[in-house]
Design a protein around this nucleic acid. Structure first.
Lengths: 121, 121
DNA sequence: AAAAACCGATACGCTAGCGAAACGAACCAC
DNA sequence: GTGGTTCGTTTCGCTAGCGTATCGGTTTTT
């Protein structure tokens, strides 16, 4: 636990949320965001049942979230040819870009004195 | 910017989101959470128009969010007697408790080596 | 005092996510 | 090959948030 952030977790979260709300990026639900981050920050393969277990939610929740994320182009479904009942969820360039921009929001929220040098959209 | 978290903002966010999804707390939308944090982490008074400006959203968004947060008991509205057009949004004990528990989720997400001693759910 | 500006709430039609139950397709055991 | 199990999806009725426009009530301006 870093001392600096010890007392300011809520502040970081707050600034990051505001940055997210103000951005024109599509605002995902908490579940959608959690799923997206699972896919992009933990090693494949990612299946519907695996994601459901990780988040502690029912499978239709995952199916619906993947539908939305697919329309946004942030993930892609690929059938498992070894077990054709299963589906692998794969990453996309667009999803990586989205998370990269989100990381920028987080970084800035963690460093309020920072000056935004890149064009903010 | 702390070195330790420099490369792991997304990881922190991810673990915190999962903790939040798994908890039995009501899951607020991004906007609702941002509003709640504004109310509890910045100095009063908080008005509808002020919150709308801070988040860069239309006023009905704030009204609706306050409706939901009021039903949950996390905030309370109080008419401004000096200017009876305005309303002040005030904090409640229940809201403070909710945010306190959320801070615990964040703290734990920031300290992956921590062992969960409390019953999870 | 009449007109304009301001504040928050409400009405409208719409979209999207929710939990629970049931489903078809694919796999497995016997 | 028949029965049972697993996987992801679909359906159902419902709730809640969305953007826009407009409202009633209040204050300010002229």
């Amino acid at each position: 636990m870093t001392d600096r952030t010890l007392s300011d977790h809520l502040g970081l979260w707050h600034r990051a949320l505001i940055g997210s709300v103000r951005s024109d990026a599509p605002d995902l639900t908490t579940r959608q965001m959690a799923i997206l981050l699972s896919i992009y920050t933990t090693s494949p393969p990612h299946t519907v049942r695996g994601l459901a277990a990780e988040l502690g939610v029912a499978k239709p929740v995952i199916t619906r979230a993947l539908d939305t994320l697919s329309v946004l182009g942030y993930v892609r479904r690929k059938r498992d040819e070894q077990d054709r009942r299963s589906v692998f969820v794969q990453r996309t360039v667009k999803g990586a870009v989205f998370l990269s921009e989100f990381r920028d929001i987080l970084a800035q929220a963690d460093d309020p004195s920072s000056i935004r040098l890149t064009a903010s959209r």
